[in-house]
């Protein structure tokens, strides 16, 4: 075969090789990503991660314990506060929002206990460490963010409507503290809420920015 012929053959093969490689790449990528049988078995943190913990269980696992366990509650003009410190230890920047979940009773109505517990939430985003704000809120200094006040069954329940300005940079472990205050002072106009109970989870969620 002449040099020219070889050259021509190579030139003819080159596009085929290039296109084949492109096709292989697409096929492989699609097969791996879109195969219907794959679930989500992986915890690959190769490119980054976000992670939150909180002080209700000493930052042990993401699922903390209750800050409030109030039995035999009587009407009172005195509000009760608890503080929870949230730790962000991911390596991506993100925004943290606080919202409520599993609020019961969730029904909106004045006859519900959850409609008669007023909750106020404020935050402290600067100068918080893992221990300088106690559960009893010693050391808590609210930042300038307007506190959120709503009845327990009217608290935000989604990330998008959640409360807070804590924005971890991902550069280091960072902390923010939240003061949650409840007031049960339903007043005489309220129907009977005796013998009733209410419950809620407080959720902090970070989404990478």
């Amino acid at each position: 075969m002449s040099r020219t012929a070889r050259r021509r053959a190579l030139r003819a093969v080159a596009p085929v090789a290039g296109l084949l490689a492109a096709g292989l790449l697409v096929w492989q990528g699609s097969y791996a990503a879109f195969s219907a049988t794959t679930t989500s078995p992986t915890n690959n943190w190769a490119t980054g991660q976000v992670s939150l913990l909180n002080s209700t269980n000493a930052f042990a696992t993401p699922i903390g314990t209750a800050a409030f366990t109030v039995a035999n509650m009587a009407p009172s003009a005195t509000a009760v506060s608890k503080c929870i410190t949230v730790q962000s230890n991911g390596n991506l920047a993100g925004n943290v929002k606080l919202y409520a979940a599993n609020v019961t009773p969730s029904v909106v109505g004045t006859n519900q206990l959850s409609a008669n517990i007023s909750v106020t939430i404020s935050e402290m985003t600067a100068g918080v460490t893992n221990s300088n704000v106690t559960a009893a809120c010693v050391g808590f200094v609210a930042n300038a963010t307007t506190p959120l006040t709503a009845n327990l069954n009217a608290l935000p329940t989604t990330y998008g409507t959640g409360f807070g300005t804590f924005a971890p940079t991902g550069a280091a472990t960072q902390y923010s503290a939240y003061k949650i205050t409840y007031l049960f002072n339903p007043g005489p106009a309220v129907a009977d809420v005796q013998g009733k109970s209410a419950s809620a989870d407080f959720v902090w969620e970070i989404q990478s920015s």
């Binding site: 976000v50 903390g64 314990t65 979940a101 959720v203």
Partner: peptide, 9 residues
């Protein structure tokens, strides 16, 4: 990316 932590119950 997202992650949550909770005070439950």
């Amino acid at each position: 990316f997202s992650a949550t932590t909770k005070s439950v119950g």
